[in-house]
Design a binder for these strands. Structure first.
Lengths: 242, 242
DNA sequence: TAAGTAATTTACCTCTTGGTAAATTCACTC
DNA sequence: GAGTGAATTTACCAAGAGGTAAATTACTTA
């Protein structure tokens, strides 16, 4: 029984375990390269198995995607709901949510991008399933951002929509950075985010020493001219070059 | 001469014009679906021409990509350099840069994603060319973010790196939102961003009335234990579901 | 009007990829 | 030790994508 004559036949890996391996490999592949660029052969190879087996266990490519998506989507949704439900300063909610997400993704960070894959074939089951999860998460995010905008005195619905996108994508950015820095624990990431948020505040809050409320242009939606305060709008500098 | 017997032969479109059409179509295709998912046949069809002609005019797929990339990259770099060179409050630089970018992209918004395409075949000319432009832009961004961090009193290089990514991706997010709202002028977008920044400030600025410096954990990079304060880290809730 | 040339297509080739049917190997029983 | 069932592969197929050689059409000009 040293070297088996051929490769066919069982390798002694029970079905549910193999299936699990496949899901993990596929999640990495989908998350890392995106649905469109992901290759089933590559997934199979990661597991050390044939494409065919993959199909037999998990069906079509879209089926496989959905099978990967579901657990991640559920876990993330749970984590976010929990984080938003916790008592405490509402101004810290974003950080709580981030920590929840980081913890949920700890052992499979790229999984976030499975959920937010932009290369899903439109009209398919995959896109449908993903959009459901995203809608649920977006609804929660919308709660948060709307609340935030209200606090800040803004009421423009487009601002709210844009802010929601910014927030969602921001999470993606942070996770992507995290993927490239495997050493960071979820806690460390959360702290880093807190620091970054503080800097972001400086960005809009004017580092100019306090006591000069004059030129804080932003804050009210609608009418008012852009860099209007200075008198001139710094209109289009020169338009195009090519 | 009503209906030409066959379709072959010239349609009377001069070479350089056709070439321009191709570049525009390709930029949209690349920007909209990403290099990997973009199809040459689709580009050709947009122009109303054959794949072959595309190849004859602009070479291989990567060649085509580079041809699309170059003008956009140049224009964006110009715009950003200009914006950062302008005199004025450094706290407004981000907004000036944004306006510059919006103006540069006005007639081809998706072009941004040509530059920041994540599906480029590694090792190829396309990836190389894109990385050069990105490096140039990143260097400028790094100037900005580092300066910002310094102002905010932080010195952690990883924070700086993360912040740079956040900024770059933020631009992408805003442009993506912009693509979906064709009505917005660059000026309107800039104003919207100003408002959003203000809200972001609120996010980290703590709406809690001043005078509670106690629990502001963040602020110093490095050592200090994670959520150690709370005792436990809210470990994985239940791990998996499937 | 015939030649020359620019613009464009037809027909093909090859490689990759998602997907399937049929065989093969192994472990365990009766 | 023959049979049964689970695990797994081999051998294919069709579609689509990138890419190329060779033909075809039309405009211009001598």
């Amino acid at each position: 029984m040293a070297t088996p004559r051929s490769k066919a036949g069982t390798k002694g890996v029970p079905r549910h375990l193999r299936r699990q391996q496949m899901l993990e490999a596929a999640t990495e592949e989908f998350g890392g390269r995106g649905f469109a660029a992901a290759s089933l052969a590559a997934v199979a190879e990661r597991v050390g198995v044939t494409k065919t087996l993959l199909h037999q266990y998990l069906g079509t490519k879209e089926d496989l995607y959905v099978a990967c998506l579901t657990p991640v989507g559920d876990d993330l949704l749970d984590a976010i709901r929990t984080a938003m439900g916790e008592e405490g300063t509402t101004s810290r909610t974003p950080l709580r949510v981030l920590r929840g997400i980081f913890e949920a993704l700890e052992e499979r960070r790229e999984a976030w991008f499975v959920l937010y894959d932009r290369s899903l074939p439109p009209g398919g089951e995959a896109a449908r399933a993903a959009s459901i999860y995203r809608a649920a998460i977006d609804a929660l995010a919308a709660d948060g951002t709307t609340e935030l905008l209200r606090t800040a005195g803004s009421t423009d619905p487009l601002d709210a929509d844009a802010l929601r996108h910014v927030w969602t994508d921001l999470v993606g950015t942070l996770v992507r950075w995290w993927v490239k820095h495997p050493g960071e624990t979820p806690e460390a990431m959360t702290r880093r985010c807190a620091r970054l948020f503080a800097v972001a505040a400086a960005l809009a809050g004017d580092p100019v020493p306090p006591g000069r409320p004059e030129d804080r242009t932003a804050g009210r939606p609608g009418e008012q001219e852009a860099g209007g305060a200075e008198g001139r709008t710094t209109g289009t500098p020169e338009h195009r070059s090519g």
